[in-house]
Design a protein around this nucleic acid. Structure first.
Lengths: 230, 230
DNA sequence: CGACGAGTATGAACTCGGTCACACCTTGAG
DNA sequence: CTCAAGGTGTGACCGAGTTCATACTCGTCG
């Protein structure tokens, strides 16, 4: 995003889009923008921190690391999305780490500034509650999925939702413009790198999708969608 | 709970405990109390509904039913806990069904009344945000657990947390006073009834726990706790 | 440009836990 | 009191997916 006028940046973030215009001006002065390089850690799980992040460009992953060192990928966040609201709102330690998947830019807002804004702008509070509510719904669904479906179904489901959330249409094809390793995909569906690889190969062979420099391109979206349900 | 003075009821619910005393009086007039019999459905997944529920007595389970009809148990709620806040806050359909595990009483509060209260009492809004935040944290942890640990570990973990949340100490023993079938336990950890049965038997044989008329009593809490981590 | 590290590819062996099948208890409704 | 229904107990079998081992491919950095 070459745009560096804070006020214009703010208008692009859905959370702030519905904000009263007169509330946007002060906001613009409170955010700070920073560029992150690939694989940089934005927040560490377990840390206490009161910063809210707003993704401007690039993709980020939220991960938790289990006691045995295994990494679980909780969500992939792209431009316009907000994260870090949990710790800001309840003051508890960060529930996950966030790492850049590729270079990108983030705007950040500190807790005191956020609370000040919320006091004058109830819509912001409502927006944040909606973000939180959405997280609960997404997590509930993922939880249900992981304990009900088998690996191919789970993988199909993840690809479908990645495509819906971040996909770029190229004719009848849909490109998922996020550089996710097979390891990453595995840790999204609770499977090993190997299992992901094998399933991906099957789909590649049957022409459902193909890989391009670290990205997945879906050729036959309906087929994938069909594979995600029973 | 024989107590039927609404104002006293309200004081027992943690969400309202920190409420300004002058805000409790109007609240008392807005809640409605109802008794539910065993296995009664309080809310149906998918329905739209704007009622917030406050558990007074008895235990309740939140479940989602997958497309294949398999039931997942999301959480067990006991006296003092609040549920149904998600749909009330974001207006979306209910994310899960709630069913009584045994006869119990619930207080309920309708959306308009709640919003009215929130407008005058910011603490209530903060309390609800905390409830939501807690849900995100719990779900995140459960999600991590289910995809990292094996069945015995998951089961141990669930029993430990049930004991911590609802347990009654009887000397060195801890009783989980909730009537959960092995099927229920299974659907909490993403396992079958049979697997739960077999693990429970092992623990019974080794004296870690025993069963009493539908309830689980933990004899060796440290052992169970040890079994829940690797 | 060449080499190292990260990611990809693939199969063989094993194993946890699910499925199935069947018998045995409780418990509460009539 | 009796019966049906729902919950519990237990073993045999088998299959999806993990683990392990071993090559290969690519891109990026000295």
């Amino acid at each position: 995003m070459r745009e560096h006028d804070p006020e214009k940046l703010v208008a692009r973030i859905p959370l702030f889009a519905t904000l009263e215009p007169e509330a946007r001006k002060p906001l613009a002065n409170l955010i700070r923008v920073r560029r992150y390089s690939a694989r940089e850690v934005v927040v560490w799980e377990g840390e206490t921190g009161g910063t809210l992040f707003l993704s401007l460009t690039g993709y980020f992953k939220a991960i938790t690391t289990g006691s045995d060192g295994k990494e679980m990928l909780l969500s992939v966040m792209g431009p316009g999305e907000v994260f870090g609201e949990l710790s800001v709102l309840d003051g508890q330690p960060r529930s996950a780490s966030v790492v850049t998947l590729e270079p990108g830019e983030l705007a950040s807002l500190e807790r005191p500034a956020l609370f000040e804004l919320m006091a004058t702008s109830p819509r912001l509070a409502i927006g944040l509650i909606e973000v939180l509510a959405q997280r609960v719904r997404t997590l509930t669904k993922r939880y249900e999925t992981i304990s009900t479906l088998d690996v191919p179904q789970r993988l199909a489901q993840v690809l479908v939702s990645l495509a819906q959330k971040h996909g770029q249409h190229e004719g009848s094809r849909v490109r998922i413009p996020v550089r996710l390793s097979q390891q990453d995909l595995g840790s999204m569906v609770g499977a090993t790198r190997e299992s992901v690889n094998k399933q991906l190969r099957k789909w590649t062979e049957s022409g459902v999708l193909h890989r391009e420099t670290g990205c997945v391109v879906i050729s036959d979206f309906p087929a994938l969608r069909a594979a995600s349900a029973t």
